[in-house]
């Protein structure tokens, strides 16, 4: 109460957000909006279109959660964050969930006191080189100049990789993808390294994409996932199971096209029924109604649809499913059962 009095004057003009005091779910419901931290611009994952509407793979996760909790995929306030301020924003309650291609690591989960609710994209750090260099393996890069996007785990991975292989390199750390891209194309570095998805997205926009190759080495594991604050397990559960519902929906064949139909009456598949709330009371167990997953799936489709629409092979980015295929198809996506 004290602080709200202290800042009462500014609250008058609506400039202060309410302190994140109670459970996040209650806050979100009362606010009527989900505050979602996203990257301030990452091709395919989060970007504003010409109407100022945020689009992308990470954005879709937030929309699904908003649909599940608030019944409206548009009820999201997207808050663009740079790498340097993202964790502070989450810790201070400025955002309810961070969906900003954040790598799940031990120290972030424990030391920084966050909870990763799952993995929405399995990535890894890769290398892109001009074809004319004739390099076929990252181990041939002894003495090369490498452009890195700074402020991430990327530069540590890079250092470890070159040290482990006992080869030398010259780092050119650059803060934004735009500058890194420009430098790479102008030949200021031989290699550009960042997450493989980012490399593919960058290469797709080159004037001559065919002149550049991605090297086979993936030098790190980058499980990217949405993050919530540690300690609010109810909220964490909602976020986690919304993501799992999207993944399971793909596995079960629930799409945005048929979800309403499937949810209208119980089907023969009991798990589909449980997800869609026509059987059991799963929604109540996480503090929502029974239609939550229907709304989440209807918002932007299941995981596969979101993938295909934002970064899939038919988009200019053209990423293959790879590790991000369902476990039944040789990928790593494996949602725990809805039971």
């Amino acid at each position: 109460m004290k602080k709200s009095v202290l800042l009462g004057a500014v609250a008058v003009v609506g400039l202060t957000a309410a302190a994140a005091s109670a459970a996040t779910l209650d806050d979100v419901k009362a606010r009527g909006k989900l505050n979602c931290g996203v990257s301030s611009g990452l091709t395919g994952f989060s970007q504003p279109d010409s109407n100022g509407v945020w689009q992308g793979f990470d954005v879709a996760v937030c929309r699904a959660i908003a649909a599940a909790v608030l019944g409206d995929p548009a009820a999201v306030e997207f808050i663009p964050l740079t790498t340097q301020v993202r964790f502070t924003a989450l810790a201070s309650g400025e955002i309810d969930i961070l969906a900003r291609n954040t790598t799940w690591t031990f120290s972030r989960d424990t030391d920084l006191k966050f909870d990763f609710i799952g993995v929405n994209y399995y990535d890894g750090q890769g290398f892109m080189v001009p074809k004319s260099l004739g390099v076929t393996s990252a181990k041939d890069l002894d003495g090369a100049t490498v452009c890195i996007q700074t402020g991430t785990t990327t530069e540590l991975n890079l250092s470890d990789f070159f040290r482990a292989n006992n080869i030398s390199y010259q780092p050119v750390p650059i803060e934004t993808n735009a500058e890194a891209q420009q430098q790479y194309l102008a030949g200021a570095c031989d290699v550009y390294t960042t997450d493989a998805s980012g490399l593919a997205a960058t290469r797709a926009t080159f004037e001559a994409p065919g002149d550049h190759v991605l090297l086979p080495e993936i030098i790190s594991k980058e499980p990217l996932g949405p993050v919530v604050r540690h300690g609010d397990n109810e909220w964490g559960d909602i976020a986690m199971w919304t993501l799992n519902a999207l993944i399971s929906a793909e596995e079960m064949g629930i799409t945005s096209a048929n979800v309403q139909e499937l949810a209208a009456a119980p089907t023969n598949n009991p798990e589909v029924n449980r997800i869609l709330g026509t059987e059991g009371e799963l929604g109540a167990m996480i503090g929502l109604d029974n239609q939550w997953a229907v709304r989440a799936i209807a918002a932007g489709g299941n995981y596969g649809e979101i993938f295909e629409r934002n970064i899939g092979e038919n988009t200019p980015i053209g990423l293959a499913r790879g590790l991000n295929a369902q476990w039944t198809e040789g990928g790593l996506l494996y949602s725990p059962p809805f039971r």
Binding site: S40, G41, P80, Q84, A178, T202, A204, T315, P316
Partner: peptide, 25 residues
């Protein structure tokens, strides 16, 4: 822009993140 507000330069990089305009410098 460096702390995440979308000033003109910050917006420029956000615009460049869209697949249509990635590479515009």
């Amino acid at each position: 822009g460096i702390i995440g507000l979308l000033d003109p330069l910050g917006l420029a990089s956000a615009i460049r993140a869209s697949t249509e305009w990635n590479g515009v410098y």
